[in-house]
Design a protein around this nucleic acid. Sequence first.
DNA 1: TTAACCTGTATTAGTAATTATTACAGGTAT
DNA 2: ATACCTGTAATAATTACTAATACAGGTTAA
Lengths: 153, 153
Amino acid sequence: MNDTRFSSAVHLLILVSEAESPMSSTQMAESIGANPSWVRKLATSLREAGIITSRPGRAGFKLAVPAGELTLLDVYRAACGQQTVRVFEAHRNPSDACIVGRHIRPVVEALFADVDEAATRALREKTLADCIRLLREDVDRTGDKYAREGGAR
Amino acid sequence: MNDTRFSSAVHLLILVSEAESPMSSTQMAESIGANPSWVRKLATSLREAGIITSRPGRAGFKLAVPAGELTLLDVYRAACGQQTVRVFEAHRNPSDACIVGRHIRPVVEALFADVDEAATRALREKTLADCIRLLREDVDRTGDKYAREGGAR
DNA sequence: TTAACCTGTATTAGTAATTATTACAGGTAT
DNA sequence: ATACCTGTAATAATTACTAATACAGGTTAA
């Protein structure tokens, strides 16, 4: 997992939560800096997980859950399709001809499991509302205006 | 960072620590299931970090630090060239034309920093000796023989 | 009711990250 | 002096990720 789906999903959900007028996938893709089709696929994952709602033919994604109750672990699971965060990649072809090669897998898996669990726990402690709060703080800090160009975003 | 250097480095260090007779990079590459040249590059990183010693022209990598004092964070830093574990990748092109795009970076960075720190802490708590212990347990559990084919590996 | 825009999805192409391959200049040991 | 080794560079191949394109419907508003 070295993709940007999780990061983009957080961005997307902030847009969904905060936009004054409903945004289309194309508009969100422009804000995220990604491809509209890719964004729709990401949105589909979030919808299937029950995080947002959407309907064919009609702009207007909506949060299906209060931002304060949506943990980033939920977001991660939906966006990346994995129950637990996967921090490292195990080497794929250890040799069975060697005693170390024959037994390295469970070793690595046990180690990784602990790291993964620590990362997963960290994600569970945060919600989308925390993200929105951080964003607003940064907006305030920089003196930027929250509404701009018509207020839609 | 989605490569297998960390996982491979652990494997390599176990070999270095446990092999009865010194192994060459080619032998280690065979055990790891990777390319000899790539393994030598990995070994170079470990040597530069003071984790192992080696000399041109002569097989025989050696641990430069007691296995019980070598944390996996040390290994990670040497193998991957990063001070802290990097769990997620941030999306690269958020648009400055959008208020969310303008302020999402610090939000994402703050979130990621917490996750990274949790993962980094987990790595710091483990040593190479723990890995070797796990490996031996698995060897015992499966009834495999630790020495085999001459005992070298 | 038709034009404009939308979602959802599939397919293919492009790009970037990762590893393999090859090569070779020396060092070391038997 | 032969065989094997490390260290390193350059290039190719592979894989993972994203972009691009297309299109079948759904929806809205003039």
